[in-house]
Nucleic acid binder design. Structure first.
Lengths: 209, 209
DNA sequence: GTCTATACAGCGATAGAC
DNA sequence: GTCTATCGCTGTATAGAC
């Protein structure tokens, strides 16, 4: 999100911004160089100066997106050490993306995977692998503290979480219903609650807000 | 067009078979008439005879897919009256699709939704609406019998189930790991087990809608 | 870094013979 | 119902001037 460190030219950044939105709405195969260049009032050729071919552009999009996600996860880590809270914050990251009929950039590309150039496929896989690793770590920590409970392995459970959120985005966009996404998130997190027997036996108080 | 009421010509059927596989692997925007015709050793023009334009072909694909799903749901209904068993059977339907790097036809099209002709969009929505209605009915019946428990509305919970399965397919294909799909299914169904009482951990807000 | 101009392949779709 | 032939358009990509 910073604009200074590893930063490319202003034009390159604006190209990525426009292209990212187009991918998140229409998919990587659903937009053209002309779509981007016309919106920025530059020419097709100028676009090719910054990103020689569409595969390069695609890889750049994924890398930037992954980097932003990494930053966001670091922020989540810094904000709380509580596993359930971290998972909730993780889910909320997806909620931020789900605006204006957008899908997750990498979720979209995961659907189109078989049509993508190999470098893009590898980058997409890397994105989800990192997400899985972060979630897996949080799940393990939560399990150790007894604030989280799950029956499959941390890695598989992490994958289930990612899949649930990606699927929820897909349907929320389809039905034009963001509330449905929140509902799915709630259900997901509820399924990770620690078992009453492990946590607190007998009758339980309900701490509803 | 038809040889009898429900059956189209052999060629039309084979076109649909090939096109369906192509969509499930590459997406609707990821295949061309040439891909289909070359595989069937017929010409582009012959394909246009059976399906005048690509939108017609797309709608035909969705309708046939929806019809097959409806039949499968009827079979599930006939096989058991137990809600958890029906849900398990529902999840297994998706498992059947998840072979050879395939996605659910309509899940794929849901991702590409914004690029699809309007008649196809409507047909995709219809598919998911029917699925939601069936699941919602099963959930209600399960709730009435006390074999199923959920906190959101039946419709929202149904949508969550669909989203979870679609997302699980997406990731299972990405990671080349069908076992991950089974794991997600198990987690999903476990989250619907009847519970002795409503319960909140105190860290997680489980809000009702 | 951006332009004009263009190459060239692929796409969906149509006309008309058989 | 299937063919050959072809059209018009859009796509990615490049060459070379400024």
């Amino acid at each position: 999100m910073g604009q200074d460190e590893t930063q490319q030219s202003d034009t390159a950044t604006r190209i990525l911004d426009v292209a990212e939105r187009l991918v998140e709405v229409r998919g990587f195969n659903g937009f053209s160089y002309a779509d981007v260049s016309s919106e920025l009032n530059i020419t097709n050729a100028a676009l090719h100066y910054h990103f020689a071919n569409k595969s390069d552009l695609g890889v750049a999009l994924i890398i930037r997106y992954t980097s932003r996600f990494d930053d966001a996860l670091s922020t989540v880590d810094a904000r709380s050490t509580d596993a359930p809270e971290r998972l909730k914050a993780y889910a909320d990251l997806y909620l931020d993306v789900l605006r204006g009929k957008r899908m997750c950039l990498c979720g979209m590309m995961a659907a189109e995977l078989e049509t993508l150039p190999e470098p893009m496929q590898a980058a997409v896989l890397e994105f989800f692998t990192r997400n899985q690793a972060w979630l897996s770590r949080v799940l393990k920590e939560g399990h150790a503290k007894g604030t989280i409970s799950f029956s499959a392995s941390p890695n598989k459970t992490a994958r289930t979480i990612i899949g649930t959120l990606e699927g929820a985005m897909l349907l929320a966009r389809l039905f034009g219903d963001v509330a449905g996404f929140r509902s799915a998130t709630t259900h997901l997190l509820a399924g990770l609650r620690p078992e009453p027997s492990e946590f607190n036996s007998g009758k339980l108080r309900v701490s509803q807000s």
